[in-house]
Amino acid sequence: MATDVHRPVTAHAVRVEGLTRAFDGRAVIDDLRLDIAPGEFVALLGRSGCGKSTLLRILAGLDRDIQGTALVPRRRAVAFQAPRLMPWKKVWRNVLLGLPGRPERAVAERVLDEVGLGHRIGAWPKTLSGGEAQRASLARALVREPDLLLLDEPFGALDALTRIKAQRLVGEVWQRRGCAVLLVTHDVEEAVLLADRVLVMDGGRIAHEQRIDLDRPRGITDPRFAALRAGLLERLGVDTAAEAS
């Protein structure tokens, strides 16, 4: 486990310091610092290409060409930006892939039901629609019961209703499991709705941090919600007055 022995008081689920990752001499992540407490839900915003997915891959332990320290728990699960299902395995086998022991089909059935894919459990991944594949990928991450859940825009290809359901599901898994979550998203509303803390990434580091202290379940109609949303949008460089018209 990645608890830092020098700081027995504040345990961390993620501890990143002085992290730098460069592609061909261009630092995409530049001296980044990030702490996530156990059980904390953190949302990560930022312009396209600012390095969010790169950060996620590093935290998942998949990219080791880094400088600096990055401490993460051993049990992690990732839902990638692209579904990345094994095309030669049926959906339910994809979900169970890599689980310890010999998990039963019912386990996959349950979690696929939760993401609304119960009827496509025996399908080949290449026959799934974009959103279905994304939900299968989400189910594959959720079934792992991790200590750190890394989600890279998991709701990108979903319609409004399915999206709300999936968001609720992630919220439930988070509360039941008590795992730390890092959710990359482009949707400020979604970030404010789900997260304890919203980070804005820019220039290779965390440029802005916003704590969200609203009670759950949160409503979009709450004026404080709107204020937080507007503040974050401003941080992202969106002119809220123009957007409102």
């Binding site: 332990g61 998949l62 792992r144």
Partner: peptide, 19 residues
């Protein structure tokens, strides 16, 4: 990308080869 996904699912070297 699929190899990476398999790695993230905790597959061992042999598991990656097989699956």
């Amino acid at each position: 990308q699929l190899v990476e996904a398999g790695e993230s699912l905790g597959l061992s070297r042999w598991g990656l080869t097989r699956h």
